[in-house]
Amino acid sequence: MSTHAHAAEPLVADDWNGGTFPYHIGHKKLGMWLFIVSDALTFSAMLIGYSYVRVSSDAWPTPFAFRPSIIFSTVMTLCLLASSFTMVMAVAASARRDRRRARRWIGATMLGGLTFLALHIYEWLHLINDYGLKPFTLPAAWLERWPQASPLFGATFFAITGLHMFHVLTGVLYLGYIALRIRRKTHEDVEISGLYWHFVDLVWMFVFPLIYLLSVDFHPTGH
């Protein structure tokens, strides 16, 4: 806009002058972005806290043998990655107003999420029952291998993966709700649920290396 001709009509096609959405996105989507920002900070706090105690500990157990733990968690990671892909397809379908396909792709996404959850719970139970890992103590065998290792291994592991699991679970429920009511939902609603889902995925891409890959056992003592 120019500085002169405007005096009588200051309403101009500038996104920031009011009367419009400056980012061209509606309230809900903007709200979701903001939620993601704040949730990202919750996870950052957790992960930074984890790094802090890990670095300041005398010893930290590195119990995840390549086989089966890392392979297993890689499969979990692939599940999530695949579900992100299906979510992209769902959003694309919804953009074409193809609600039936969109619903199917969302279903596939949920399946990916549920598989991830099932595998994750299986893994938790494995650690708890077969190894004896607890949120507050390490298994005796680990303490032998890593003397002075910090019991916070269990605490951080369960707290962070648990929080993430909770996010996956709410994500699945949320997607289920969108899928069920897809006829009454707009494309943007689908997009927003997609945003959340990709975010949950993205968080895992931090959790996976920090929690798992940094604790790989390179010299497993047979099992």
Binding site: F21, H24, I25
Partner: peptide
Amino acid sequence: EATTPIEPTAAAAATQAEAAEAGHPA
């Protein structure tokens, strides 16, 4: 009358539908 520059894409259409829900003037 609103001089909004939103392009008439599918995304924008959805945006506006959503805005209607929230009672936005745009």
